[in-house]
Design a protein around this nucleic acid. Sequence first.
DNA 1: AGGAGTACCGTACGCCGTACGGAGTCACTC
DNA 2: GAGTGACTCCGTACGGCGTACGGTACTCCT
Lengths: 256, 256
Amino acid sequence: MATEFTGTGDPARSMALLWRVPLNGAARPGPRPTLDVDRIVAAAVRLADAEGLAALSMRRVATDLGVGAMTLYSHVPGKGELVDLMLDAVLAELYPDEALVVAGDWRNRLSTVARANWDFFVRHPWALHLATGRPPLGPHLMRKYELELRAVDGLGLPEVEMDLLVTLVTGFVRGAVGGVQEKADAERVTGITEDQWWAATEPYVAQVLDAERFPTAARVGPVAGEELGAGDPRRSFEFGLDRLLDGIGVLVGQKR
Amino acid sequence: MATEFTGTGDPARSMALLWRVPLNGAARPGPRPTLDVDRIVAAAVRLADAEGLAALSMRRVATDLGVGAMTLYSHVPGKGELVDLMLDAVLAELYPDEALVVAGDWRNRLSTVARANWDFFVRHPWALHLATGRPPLGPHLMRKYELELRAVDGLGLPEVEMDLLVTLVTGFVRGAVGGVQEKADAERVTGITEDQWWAATEPYVAQVLDAERFPTAARVGPVAGEELGAGDPRRSFEFGLDRLLDGIGVLVGQKR
DNA sequence: AGGAGTACCGTACGCCGTACGGAGTCACTC
DNA sequence: GAGTGACTCCGTACGGCGTACGGTACTCCT
């Protein structure tokens, strides 16, 4: 599967696409387009949602739309820009109720932010595999940043720490979903279920995990495997979030 | 660039490779191998370190070794297994001094763990792009797990929480390195430096980030960009680690 | 009426992982 | 000592990928 990089194209063109800047005047020469950017992006998102980022190819998106592969390039400069547009498009789903992000105290708010990000990545797990070192600065990413900053506004924190906190919480969620989602992805990629894989692997682990070399792992591993493997995948998310919010509480408390 | 999945091969074969189980008796027919698994893995790691996971191809590794591409398949079942072996190989570099992980109090220990993981991912950033939902359970991953569990042993925590804490801390570090590293990766992939990219992007951001729609982002973004963009990339790591350890302190303290 | 710019898309290039089969080499059996 | 079978090395080829290039048909502007 692919890690796709966002923000790989020409910034001017990418920004124009993200913000849907009209190209010329209203009247452009040439045949009436049968296709537009939104339909391409929607098809690409459908595909990535259903089959993962590895299945996302220009040819496949074109086929799903019933057009030739090269037709896409009349509307989108390349795959990199398409990925930018996909990400900004699905980010629109976040925070349908904007008031919720500023409801209650800071702990409620950050919890809302974390849960919204969790739901987002569960719905669009391919977004986990995007390297957003150069984020697509579209309207919906802006909105997300704005709303998440509001969750930590008014606490007396310096601006830098507001940014750092938002990055910390959303980064944590990304990792937590990743841990769960990579197991699901592995099932699709290999065609082997988690149970089958572990059944095939466990005998070798048993041979190798001797209590002399690895006493702590031999003690903890089986217990953790049983309790976390069988249980709610949200458990490690909830555990981590509680620790994180407690830690943030120390910072927020001492500024008061 | 590619997200590679670990643990995609036949578990029996993968475990045999990871633990370097000799294949038959000592005397095998056929010509003396000019190549072996270790040399292949070393070449692959060198390549991924230098040029990233996207540059890692079977053909390229073979070329670097001066052999035909298909020769690799005499020693390694496929690229998936090679990636497993690469990861376990570089994990051997972690914790050269095992005593350090159990030195001092829990906070010192977890800080050591976090810093070791930071250094590891900085040295081998391609490891950030591996989906380890089915981890390669080789000797060095086992050792890592063992040592990191020891850092949180003896605190009176249940086994499950020991595992959860280790996952939380290492997951945080992975995210923190990722944030920094993805910018560096983007430079290599696009050939455009961070400064050039921002210079080209900033005018469009200025147009679009109006203080009416995005008041908080308009206030915080520039400050954060200036202080974090110019400064030490470790800053967000240190900030997050402090919050995380404070939060863990709440848990550890209340169990005492 | 004609030029220009556009949408659609067939073909092709250079990558990728790897299946297949052949040639050469060695340890073993008889 | 000849034969057998397993093994290493690897050339070729297949079906995928992103996308450069150029052709054709269409529509607007002058």
